[in-house]
Structure formats: structure tokens, C-alpha cells
Design a protein around this nucleic acid. Structure first.
Lengths: 195, 195
DNA sequence: TTCGATATATATCAATTCGATATATATAAT
DNA sequence: ATTATATATATCGAATTGATATATATCGAA
């Protein structure tokens, strides 16, 4: 499953431009479980076009580059169902935040607290973002009557942010104290008040 | 923050080969928040060697290729602390599982249940894996006295698997029923009992 | 009012990462 | 006897990331 397949899936909701497709990843319903930017979306659409999975019509605009509106072909729809019939690969998670905490002795106390609080703030922001993400925000979606799969994925995201956010709040003080207690004055990678 | 930095971090626990480093990602303490395979680790070590961040000594073996044992240099340690002093990038998550659920109408009922149950089984397996992951399993780590940062990251992982696992179990029936209720007999992307 | 930020829209490119494959042998399990 | 797993390194094409380039319009702040 690659970005191309995701684009085909998004096109089942209706014709769209590459720019609009990015919206699904940026702040849209995919943002909490799949990331993709222009650098992967545009090549994916071009490849799909070459394979006959989508069609493309251009629409002139003033000033801006022509809009290229993509539409799913029957072959593209078939490719999507084929791909979805495979067992999905394991989740891939990359958290630089947890890397930083793992190597806490090499980070200054101040930076460690900053990093923790910025991460927590991200969680609060993501919860708000998801709350406002209903059917109406899904271009081509059905307003107020979200299909079960989409609703479940959204609830999954809400639960994730709320549960992990709570864990982060509950354990902040204990974590910071534990790291500081572990810093021995000598042979310490980072000096107590240093950079 | 890239795989090279992660390798430097791992080398703070002691000298190691590329093969041993991979163990940290494969089943070790990084497995739930950072993935890296040989294809990124070996090039990363070579690059680090070229930049003087690590040294390398070869050790002959019978049959197998020579062991190449890497050791952190002061410059490498400095590179690590520099990198850790930056604000970490946002978490990147890629879940093909959630993509499959999102596009549930394009998946056969049987496959959908299989996918769900396989994913749940992965969670149970990961919880067991993390339970057995103590200081002693961290090469060079201190047995029975895990540093606070490492302990926190492990607890984070445990909490994640337990909380999300519970959500998945609690909502399985409702999700499956919701998807099936949403399948209209006509204009249905996938026939009820089909492929 | 002018400056910077944001939004609209596409495209490309170097660097990084992924996933598979290749090469060998030993041992453990079926 | 055969298959799978473990030890160990290396490479390569394909996919992805993150930054940059190109234009214009608008909107808010200084």
C-alpha cells in the first residue's frame, strides 16, 4: 500500500486536484495515521495517470497554474480493491519525541521540559482538530452521516489522543523528577544548568 | 534526527556491530517508536565513520563475514547531544490497518474481520514483548535499574498497547455491525459474500 | 500602506529510508 | 532430511521526505 493507493481511495469521494488531496493528509481525516506531501502525491498521481488508473482534465485559472482535476477510472477502482484485499503491513511509527526522552541524560533539563510541554500542547491541538473533523469536512463525504469505517477511524484517533494525552499529563512530574535524580554530578553528559 | 543519530545513541551503551544495533529496532527497546533495518543502518554507520563520529575495528570469524565493531568518538557524542538539543519533529505514523478500515466498503466482510483480528493479535504480542523488555534486555544497559528516560518510554509503549488494545476489543462488534449495516445491496463496491 | 503570513496550485530534486535480495555457515526444530 | 532461525555484512531500485522554485491574491498587522 503506497501513496498512489491512498490517492485512488480519496478519489472515490469525487474528482479532486493534487492540492485538494493533500488536504486529506494535512489537516483532514488521514492526518493522524498517514502522512503525505506534494513530493509524494504529485508523482503518485502521474504514475496512476500513466497506468490508466485515473484520468486528468486541466482547468485554466488566472495567475495560478492550471488546475489538474483527477478522476478515478474503473481500472483504478479495481486496483484499489485489489490492494485493500491484502493484509496490511505493520504500523510504522517514528517518534523523535520518545527518542529524545530515551536519551534524556544527554539533554539539558530545560530543553527536556520544553520538549515535553510542546508535545503535550500538540496533543491538545490534535484533539481539538479531530473534534471539528466531521463528515462535512470530508470533501465529497456525507455531512452528518459518516460511514462506519470513517467514523471508527476518527474515534480511534480521538481515543488515542485522549488516552495518551492523559498519560503524559499524569506522569510529567514523576518523569522529570526521575531524570533529575539520575543525573550524577560527575560523569554527567550534560551539566545541570548547561545547554 | 535520522538513523545515524539513533545509531550514535545506541553506541553510548557500548560498542556494537550493525547487526546488534538492528536488534534495538527489531525486538528491542525502540521497536514501538522507531523502525530501521539493515538498509538504513549500514549506510548510516558508514557515513558516521566517514565523518569521524565512530571508529570501527574488524574481528575475524569462521565462515561468517568479519564482525565490524563500532565505537563512539567524542565527536560522535557531541553530534548526538547537538541533535538532541533540537525540537523533535512531529510523530510520523503510517497505519495501513486504519486505511483499510477507512475504506471498509471496498473490503469483503471476511477480510475485514480477519484484518481486525490480526491487528488485535499483534497488540497482544506487543504487550507481551514489552513486558519482557527490561534493563537486562538492553545490551549495555543496567539490569534491574533502568534509567528514568528509558523506563518512561517503555511505560509509554505499554500504556499505548494496553489502552488502544482495549479500545479495539470494546468496539469490534459495533464496528463490524456498522459497516455491514452500511452496505446497500445495490451499488455496493463489494458483494456481500464476494472476494 | 506596506510587510509578512496564509491560501491557491503545480513541479522537481537531493537525501533518506524501505524492502528485497545476495552471500555464507551453524544450529535448532520439524 | 529439510526447513527455519540466527549470525553477519552489503547493495540496489523504488518510494518517501523535506526543501525549494514559481506565481498571484488576499487578509491582517504594524
Amino acid at each position: 500500500m503506497d501513496v498512489k493507493t491512498l490517492c485512488l481511495g480519496i478519489l472515490t469521494f469525487g474528482d479532486a486536484t493534487g492540492y485538494e488531496i493533500r488536504g486529506y493528509f494535512e489537516d483532514g481525516p488521514f492526518s493522524h495515521f498517514f502522512q503525505a506531501g506534494f513530493g509524494s502525491i504529485y508523482p503518485a498521481l502521474n504514475k496512476a495517470l500513466g497506468e490508466g488508473l485515473v484520468t486528468c482534465r486541466a482547468e485554466s485559472q488566472d495567475g495560478r497554474p492550471d488546475k489538474k482535476i483527477y478522476a478515478l477510472t474503473p481500472s483504478g477502482r479495481e486496483h484499489l480493491t485489489d490492494d485493500l484485499s491484502h493484509v496490511p503491513a505493520d504500523d510504522k511509527i517514528r517518534s523523535e519525541f520518545l527518542v529524545t526522552l530515551f536519551f534524556a541524560p544527554y539533554v539539558s533539563p530545560q530543553h527536556l521540559e520544553d520538549v515535553y510541554d510542546l508535545y503535550l500542547a500538540d496533543f491538545e491541538r490534535n484533539i481539538e482538530k479531530m473534534k471539528n473533523l466531521t463528515g462535512g469536512d470530508i470533501p465529497g463525504g456525507v455531512s452528518g452521516d459518516i460511514p462506519a469505517g470513517q467514523a471508527f477511524v476518527r474515534e480511534f484517533g480521538m481515543h488515542f489522543y485522549q488516552s495518551i494525552g492523559e498519560f503524559l499529563r499524569d506522569n510529567r512530574a514523576r518523569f522529570i523528577a526521575g531524570v533529575e535524580a539520575g543525573r550524577s554530578p560527575k560523569a554527567d553528559p550534560v551539566q545541570g544548568g548547561g545547554a
